[in-house]
Design a protein around this nucleic acid. Structure first.
Length: 165
DNA sequence: GCCAACGTTGGC
DNA sequence: GCCAACGTTGGC
């Protein structure tokens, strides 16, 4: 399957782009998703190497804060089994886990591209995250949208060799 | 803190 | 299967 592109929301108080960069292996398990659409994207469509727009939400300056990639296939979310976790799900079981997630690996920190700036670009008007009432924490990004953002809004970002585009 | 929009739950 | 009530998200 062709490489796909995604936008993934994270509350910076929970895990910011700097937090991601500082983690062991610069990788974070994307646990805590409790929405079926978002889960299905991770479980059914994401592949290792897929590109991710790392988006800060529920904060003073919501917007794209960096680039990341999918680091592994989806696997069961441990927090659903932990009665002490805010993500505990009594209706799930190890035999039939309801919630899965991928790991996300840091690629680059970018200048913050605010929501307001994103809305200024007609080429991005169809982005899922910009639609009225859009709350989904994981949304597909069209290749054209990704390329536009890389070319026009991010500019020269240092990526590891072989990861351009 | 407000509120629009959306997803989930549960009674029927 | 319908749909009202409720909870959550997330920008402002």
């Amino acid at each position: 399957m062709r490489m796909q592109y995604w936008l993934m929301k994270s509350e910076p108080e929970d895990c910011s782009i700097d937090d991601l960069a500082a983690r062991p292996g610069q990788t974070v398990p994307w646990y805590g998703v409790r929405n079926y659409q978002a889960r299905n994207f991770m479980r059914d469509q994401m592949q290792v190497g897929d590109r991710v727009l790392f988006y800060h939400s529920s904060c003073a300056e919501p917007g794209i804060a960096g680039l990341a990639e999918v680091a592994c296939a989806a696997y069961p979310d441990e927090t659903q089994f932990d009665a002490a976790s805010r993500y505990f799900d009594a209706k799930s079981s190890r035999e039939a886990p309801r919630w899965l997630h991928v790991d996300v690996r840091f690629l680059a920190k970018t200048p913050l591209i605010s929501l307001a700036v994103l809305r200024c670009h007609p080429a991005l008007a169809q982005m899922r995250v910009l639609q009225k009432g859009s709350r989904l924490s994981i949304t597909p990004v069209e290749p054209e949208e990704w390329q536009y953002i890389i070319d026009h809004l991010i500019g020269a970002v240092t990526l590891a060799p072989g990861t351009e585009g």
